[in-house]
Nucleic acid binder design. Structure first.
Lengths: 211, 211, 211, 211
DNA sequence: GATGAATGAGCGTTCATTCAT
DNA sequence: CATGAATGAACGCTCATTCAT
């Protein structure tokens, strides 16, 4: 049990996951081969049996990250698109405190490192994919009548995505408590959703009172 | 106060400024002593005559950054607080393309690096100062009647600050064109301001149509 | 002798041959286990089933090389010893351009690496064998009257061997064209042979004019 | 005395010399940064204060080598060109046993490594320079009447250079004793010089008896 | 008081070799 | 018995920092 040899695919996943965690904790540049190897429990050069080099490991970590983001976006099966958005927002805010290193932290680190490493294009691509997914949800809501017809879809998608970013940044700056904990973040989400909720639909927990 | 003591102080400023620029271009971890010394024109260990080490230099750079942020917040002298917010937002969006390295880029880099260097607390402090300043402006607007009385001041301050953050992150991810260039960012700003504009006040360039 | 025992022996030969080629192309230090395994088509530690380690593989390659050198020395069956020497010289110069990797290149590489690996003694042995063979040819020529009786046999043997070495070194330095291509090498061979040709024997294509 | 700081130029020379020696002993690929640093008495990365990297160190070593070769070629001031050649040959054979690592060994190693590293062109250039210098000496001898007029200058130059190469290779193969020690090398030099000596000139110590 | 020399820690990577499977 | 996983040593190189000068 102690010194079990793992198969390559297991190891690859293990390495990617460990790297993702390390990126979340120490940043992309802090994700050194030694730290990764240490986290996996193997020794330095052994990483090269599973990946061709550090870059490929980082790419593998990004792939895993992407999967997790997709999983997040698919995590809500609520048929009501507006409700779905709210649940996504709630989930994101929740993971800010429960599993930062798993998704939001590395996501942010990759984005931050993006314009220096050559990972930029990949991150931009991923971001666009996320935007597209959000856009699709909003349009679905518009079609099903839960979201107002005159809504600026791109504006809303960016607002939603932006909110998650700000949560991340606040977390990175050690202000998660002040932004998320005190409910500011939740009120911002509420505002976004209330503003786009179709009249008569009470999916949004609160309503803008007089508009 | 002393006569020629300024030489050293000038050098400190020079070093801080150079460091800030380098941080904007290469990130916090890319701000190596060699690069800084090179940019200042002195070379190598001479930096230790003015600062006790790399950390202190970075702190000095952050101090300078803070000054610049304050200068930005004070850059508009418009008596109308609502208008002032709009001008600040416009200025930020503008500097995204004109002088990224000067303020927004290093600001973002410091925030990004924050939670692993020991600069976090300082950044949080700076962020709180900015929030306080924004809060003051909003309250001023409320008092002068240009901003609605029932506005959630903290929510608005965070929304405004968050918008600048998202602009930065979009820029870092190479998506400035898609977010700022296509006007999404401007529409988000407009939405924030329109929502808080006192009825009858037309400081906001556009109005939400039916509210 | 055994029936299917040849498989292993074949593999050994295969490995030795591949190694020889690699040594010719990348040098002794460039003959890595990975490259050898790759060339043979098996991969990695399988080599240890046939050889005890890298050193033994290199020794195996040298053995094969020795065989090939012997084959070269035996390649001419011309009964006239003087002619035989000329043919050997011509063959060597020819292989410089046609099959460098097969013999001359690895031969040179092993010689070059000799004094730091522990292969030196083997190479010296091989060299002595070659010298002995050349000596035998020269003495045979002397006995059959095609080579002058008063010739300094060791001097001639070394001169001949030295010429092949210089051809190799010139090739290694990228000066094959200047040394072999322009006929300098051929004239040196001619000079050696003319000087030792017995008077009246016209085996040498040219004659020293005034002796 | 113990920890004296050396000036850069001293160190550069020191490093080049040490590298040359190491190349002579361990080959070009064996000239590792650690070994060089060790030989100089400084520690690894300190080398980068004087050279930009390993390649530049190797080039520096080659420069030094070139100087030494030139010094060798200029070491004889004998007005008689034929005598000069003999003295050069004698000196070379002598250094084979007295200071192998200083010149001949590294010279050979660089030549041997040449076709793999990108030092080839430099070595070829150096070789051509040496050939040119030898050619000049031979032509000078022809003009002054100590060397026969009908001599093939290029052939002689290559023969002479080739002899030094063979001495080197023999040394590398551990056969210096058999080639140089027993006088074979000296007789080869004698033969070259005797063959080109102008009739009546007895600069050559020995004469071929009957030609 | 500024500089050049030097260092120790650490980086990503390669290689010959071992061992469980 | 051949392979894939793993390792320890070593490689060239970068960096923040110290210290003699």
């Amino acid at each position: 049990m102690a010194f079990m040899r793992k198969t390559s695919e297991e190891r690859r996943q293990e390495i990617a996951a460990a790297t993702l965690h390390i990126v979340g904790e120490f940043g992309v540049e802090g994700a050194t081969m030694a730290r990764i190897a240490d986290a996996v429990g193997i020794s330095g050069p052994a990483l090269y049996k599973h990946y061709s080099g550090r870059t490929e490991i980082l790419e593998g970590a990004m792939d895993l990250l992407l999967q997790r983001v997709v999983a997040w976006l698919d995590s809500s099966t609520n048929p009501n698109a507006l409700e779905r958005l709210r649940e996504l927002g709630d989930t994101h805010a929740a993971t800010m405190t429960t599993d930062r290193e798993g998704v939001v932290a590395p996501l942010f680190e990759f984005a931050a490192a993006g314009h220096r490493s050559n990972l930029t294009s990949q991150m931009a691509e991923r971001t666009r994919a996320t935007l597209a997914k959000l856009t699709a949800i909003i349009e679905e809501g518009r079609d099903q009548g839960t979201i107002r017809a005159d809504v600026d879809v791109r504006l809303v998608a960016w607002s939603f995505l932006g909110l998650t970013w700000v949560e991340n940044l606040a977390g990175a700056e050690g202000m998660a408590e002040e932004f998320v904990g005190t409910g500011v973040s939740a009120r911002m989400l509420d505002k976004i959703l209330t503003d786009i909720a179709a009249p008569g639909d009470d999916s949004g927990r609160a309503h803008s009172q007089d508009c």
